[in-house]
Simulated assay, not measured.
Amino acid sequence: MVVLSATVLPAWAQEPEVPACLRVDYPQPTVPEFGHTEALSYSTQETQCWVDVVEARRAGGMALDVREAAVAPLPGAVALPLPSVADRRYLRDQPLTLVGTGVDLRALTTACLTLRKQGFSKVQVLLGGARSWARIQSVDMVTPQEAWLGALDGQWRLIGIGLRPEQVQSLVGKPEVNLPSSVDDAALVQALNDAELARPLGSHQQWLLITQNQASGQSLLARLQQAPYKPGARALAWLSGGWDSYNAYLQQQQQSAAHAGRPLPRSCGS
């Protein structure tokens, strides 16, 4: 899935007095109805917040793991809840890279712009999030939840393998290519190349390949590893468990949607 000659006061001297607590609970994007949805577009100002893992590691600075439910801290990153970043005024002049889940691009981009207005001029958002930061292999496996959330932020371009029309309709995004399950390696690679030639990937986008189920996905992956598709520096992402896994997640979400509530806002001392 990609920097006058005058006396100028420093940024901190020009800013109005700020409140003691700077924590912000960044709103999550509104979740649409299940099924197809239009991919979000981003302004030039928003895309200027983004950095890929190669650029982030080259630039150095501090990586902040801002995931709310991090299973384990990322190597080389500092765990810090996103709403608490603004409180750390001593970080204002440091290069900061916000590392999220990889499918929270809209929320982190909003946070980046807000932090920049507060004086954190060197803050950026890592494209691909924790998966990109910690990836040690070319196969990028994506959970059904990551597939769904990432689609809402316009991060995936979908490739279906052997999906039936009704299965395609259940996906948040519409596959640009839907090939038969019997497709050979050469035809798949050619289809991916043709699709990317017709409409190049955005800097925040990645191809997400969706098979029927876990078995068909493993079979195809084994064949492709002999002649892997390499879209630049970005690995081809695979939906773990295929459509079967995604459909189970979708049904679970539909059942709980009617009972969903809004979380209470967090106070600055929490």
Rank of each mutant, 00 (worst) to 15 (best):
G100D: 02
A107V: 14
R106I: 01
G160P: 03
L192P: 04
G242H: 11
V99D: 04
W243M: 07
Q155G: 07
Q214C: 03
Q225V: 09
R58V: 12
R116G: 04
S84R: 13
Q218W: 05
A77L: 11
R58K: 10
A258P: 04
A72K: 09
S41W: 12
V99F: 04
R262K: 07
E46Q: 15
Q118H: 09
W133K: 06
W50R: 00
A107E: 13
T114E: 00
S203F: 00
L108W: 15
C268K: 07
S138E: 12
L105E: 15
E176R: 09
K117P: 03
R23G: 13
Y90W: 11
Q255I: 02
L197F: 14
Q225K: 14
L115K: 01
A187C: 07
T101N: 09
R92P: 06
L239P: 06
G160M: 03
L221C: 07
L236W: 15
V3S: 13
L250G: 04
S170Y: 00
L197M: 11
S121V: 09
L64H: 13
N178I: 00
I161A: 04
S43F: 07
L158I: 10
L163T: 05
P29R: 12
L250E: 06
Q190D: 13
G129V: 10
D25G: 01
A235L: 13
P200G: 01
G150P: 14
A237I: 06
Q218C: 02
E46S: 14
S132G: 13
V66A: 12
Q253L: 07
G242N: 06
V125S: 01
P19M: 04
P263C: 00
E38N: 05
A13T: 06
T101P: 10
L239R: 06
A59H: 15
E196Q: 15
T110L: 05
F120C: 08
K117Q: 15
S219C: 04
A147Y: 15
Q218T: 06
T37A: 14
K122A: 00
S121I: 11
A151I: 06
W133H: 14
F120N: 10
L105W: 11
G241Y: 00
D184H: 04
S5T: 11
V78K: 10
A130R: 15
G173C: 01
E15Q: 12
V125C: 00
A248E: 12
V139K: 05
M62P: 04
A130F: 15
R199I: 03
S216G: 13
S216R: 09
V8Q: 09
R223K: 09
G217W: 08
L64M: 07
Q205R: 07
